[in-house]
Amino acid sequence: MSTILETATRILVDKFDASAEDVFPDAVLEDLLSDSLDWVEFAVAVGDEVGTRIRDEELTDVRTVADFVAVVEEKVGALK
């Protein structure tokens, strides 16, 4: 089973056309996504795959891929 980092990386590359080499834990999401619409769309797409919903206000302090993964891991963990 893929980790959330792997899932997020795959979606950034496949759906949002990020280069694989640009996607790593410390990469800044703003550099990988074209605008605020894509930010939310990315959260919706990851949520679809991992079975949770990430609300806009939960992304307020997210800056990097690792920040995002931490938010999702916490939510998925809370579901278990």
């Binding site: 619409l37 939310v40 769309e41 919706v44 949520g47 990430i54």
Partner: peptide, 13 residues
């Protein structure tokens, strides 16, 4: 079927 956070921000565009 789901919830508000499942709706795409690209719907209107």
């Amino acid at each position: 079927e789901q919830e508000p956070a499942a709706v795409s921000p690209l719907m209107f565009p």
